[in-house]
Computed example of a mutant assay.
Amino acid sequence: MQLIKVTKTLVFIYALNKEETHTFDKKQVISLIYRAWRNYILEIVAELKVLGKKIANFNSFFAGYSPDGADIYSSTVLKNSFVFGLNELFDLGLSKHEMIIVFQKGEHHFAIVKYGIHQYANMFGMEKNALLLDCRTIESQPYEIYINGYDLILVNSNVKYDLSESTYNNRREACEKISRLLGVDIIKDSTKENLDHIKNKLT
């Protein structure tokens, strides 16, 4: 990926291996229908604007050779790359934690997907460590893991992963409904006994 400041009036993005481009006015960032990687970048620019972070126009060139939803074209990798790159290019002064919030709120406000923690491992992951993440405080603790004697197998299912087209919001709303029934902020604050008391109310 390359990011370059420009004096032009528009932002220009070029996905090299796809030979696809997108040009937009950062003063009027509008979500696109079925435009995949373009929306990932627009989300970041829109949320930086909400936070009052000033960025000038720029050109960007990037490449990745995995299918949509994977590698550089996954929302996690592309958004993290852009928020990190723009932070450096324009001296925005964002910490890694603040960049995670930009990513998360961008999905909430722009993509209308109540998600945004899956990028945490991409930003804070440590070699030979697992992260215990508290999604309420968005803080984590690394724990060293030992997997000697085990093999990890990655399988390409050829199923496109796209939260904006999934039922993730429905599943989250179901969890929030159960939390209200339990009288807690989030389900992790409950106990098995409390769940047993409301199981007849669940369908």
Rank of each mutant, 00 (worst) to 15 (best):
G183M: 00
N200Q: 10
N194M: 14
S190T: 15
L195E: 02
R172Y: 07
D189S: 08
A70Q: 06
A70N: 04
G69P: 12
S157G: 13
H118E: 13
I30F: 06
G69M: 05
V159I: 15
V77Y: 10
K26Y: 10
I112Q: 15
G149Q: 05
I186R: 15
N129S: 06
V113W: 01
H22A: 10
S74G: 02
M99P: 09
F110C: 04
G125V: 10
D71N: 14
L92P: 06
K79E: 14
L163A: 12
F82S: 03
I198F: 01
E144C: 00
G93D: 10
I145Y: 13
H108L: 07
I30S: 05
L181S: 07
T76N: 14
E193G: 00
K188V: 06
Y168A: 07
K188W: 06
S31H: 07
I178Y: 02
L152T: 03
N169Y: 02
R38C: 13
E88H: 08
H97A: 13
F110D: 05
V102C: 08
L133F: 08
A63E: 13
Q119D: 09
L94S: 13
Y143D: 00
T137H: 04
A121F: 08
I117G: 11
L86H: 09
I147F: 13
S166K: 01
I145A: 02
K201T: 01
Q141W: 01
R35T: 00
F110K: 08
E98S: 07
E173P: 00
T9N: 14
S157H: 12
Q104H: 08
V29I: 15
F62A: 00
K114S: 12
F90L: 07
Y120E: 02
K54T: 14
R180H: 05
F82I: 03
A111V: 14
G125Q: 02
I33M: 01
R136Y: 07
R180C: 02
T76I: 14
N170G: 04
E88M: 04
F12H: 15
D25L: 08
S81T: 05
V6D: 09
V83S: 11
S140R: 00
A15L: 11
F90Q: 07
D68I: 11
N57H: 06
Y146R: 10
G183Q: 02
T23E: 11
E127T: 12
L163V: 05
A111S: 15
E19L: 12
Y40C: 02
A130R: 03
K160C: 09
T167C: 04
G52C: 01
K114F: 03
K96W: 01
V102L: 02
D25G: 11
I101D: 06
F90D: 04
M123F: 02
A121P: 00
I186W: 12
A36C: 02
A130S: 10
I13F: 07
S179Y: 01
M123Y: 02
